[in-house]
């Protein structure tokens, strides 16, 4: 499948700000599931900094905008060919030991609810792959897709207790549950092409990856009860949403920030 991405993120400030600095993780991962055709990331009036590929295989690029800064506009335009690898991150070069993904963060802190769920639904299973599938299904059932009831700071435990949330919450809850039974897990950010059946989800999407010994990293999208296929574009990963964020940035000053994001994903008919 050939997908096009048009993604504009605009940070507008009510008063002119000092310098803005950003760290972008907006580049498609290199693995058998995707082949980049063209990909351009720019910041209006921005100065490109250094870029590198980190130990997790993600490309990161630094940018800055000189003061005064009224707004920062980050644009991603790209075209990419995708393939269904049944969620398996095959051919992805990375160095980080899977065990480094057993660490808790405040967003993926495991409470009794998460620990109990993880233990109950995987009882009697010995295969990590089975456990991962079972966990993903259980989280999808336990948290109903409901926009606007959670925010960026909602933790996995809170989302589960509430029983509602968006893809970030599903991913966090699945990661936390997996780690609680010693399965390394991480947060993945990317894009998802809207499906024709109208299932609810966002084009800027997030899911989880779980490490299965013998296979490697496998993606699980609990929000859509599936594994990522050719409708998904993978950008980067981290211990939680904050670490995997496609854009991390600051602008100096006390101004109020307004965020405006538009993401359009299209499929090129062949």
């Amino acid at each position: 499948m050939i997908l096009t991405v048009d993604h504009v993120t605009k940070y507008a400030y009510d008063v002119p700000m000092g310098a803005a600095v950003q760290s972008l993780r907006l580049f498609p991962s290199r693995f058998e599931g995707q082949r980049e055709i063209e990909w351009l990331v720019t910041i209006e009036n921005g100065i490109r900094g250094g870029s590198f590929r980190d130990g997790a295989g993600d490309k990161v690029e630094g940018w800055s905008v000189r003061p005064p800064v009224d707004e920062v506009v980050v644009t991603v335009r790209g075209k990419i060919e995708t393939f269904d690898t049944s969620g398996v991150l095959r051919g992805h070069r990375e160095l980080v030991h899977p065990m480094a993904y057993l660490r808790e963060t405040s967003a993926t802190w495991v409470d009794d609810g998460l620990a109990k769920l993880a233990e109950e639904v995987t009882q009697g299973l010995s295969e990590p792959l089975q456990k991962a599938h079972r966990l993903s299904a259980a989280i999808g059932e336990a948290i109903a897709y409901t926009p606007d009831v959670t925010d960026a700071h909602t933790t996995a435990a809170e989302a589960l207790a509430q029983g509602q949330g968006v893809c970030q919450d599903h991913a966090h809850a699945l990661i936390a549950a997996a780690r609680s039974i010693d399965l390394p897990a991480r947060y993945v950010s990317g894009y998802l092409l809207a499906s024709e059946d109208g299932a609810p989800h966002e084009a800027a999407h997030a899911w989880a990856e779980i490490w299965v010994q013998g296979i490697g990293w496998i993606g699980f999208d609990a929000a859509n009860s599936c594994c990522p296929d050719e409708r998904y574009i993978r950008l980067g990963s981290g211990l939680d949403a904050r670490e995997a964020a496609p854009i991390r940035g600051v602008a100096q000053g006390g101004g109020e920030e307004r965020l405006d994001v538009t993401v359009a994903l299209g499929q090129v008919q062949q």
């Binding site: 600095v21 760290s23 900094g49 250094g50 990161v60 690029e61 991390r248 940035g249």
Partner: peptide, 24 residues
């Protein structure tokens, strides 16, 4: 670097870790 480590840090330099890791 608040962009890489603790986001509430006021002591560091935003973006420093990107410069460091790209060899600057």
């Amino acid at each position: 670097d608040p962009l890489c480590f603790r986001p509430d840090s006021m002591l560091g330099v935003p973006g420093l870790m990107d410069v460091y890791r790209s060899g600057g």
